[in-house]
Amino acid sequence: MSIYVNLDEIIKKNNITSKELAELIGITEANLSILRSNKAKAIRFSTLNKLCKILQCEPGDILKYIDDNEEGEESEDE
């Protein structure tokens, strides 16, 4: 998938643990882990809303679009 969840960096910046974040959003730690590891198929607006509010960021900071082909070419160049 081309959409990537860039939660790890923002969590580090905000100096918050996964457990605390999960509690604040109202999801389980397991689900947060699915989100962080890019295994999630979709994200609800309500979850995104809470994430932006707690982590004080824009949706664009959390979700990133990376073209799979470009990524492949870059890795080949390296």
């Binding site: 689900n31 947060l32 699915i34 198929k41 979709a42 609800r44 979850t47």
Partner: peptide, 8 residues
């Protein structure tokens, strides 16, 4: 079902 369960 899997898609639903993986919707966070």
């Amino acid at each position: 079902y899997t898609e639903n369960s993986l919707t966070i």
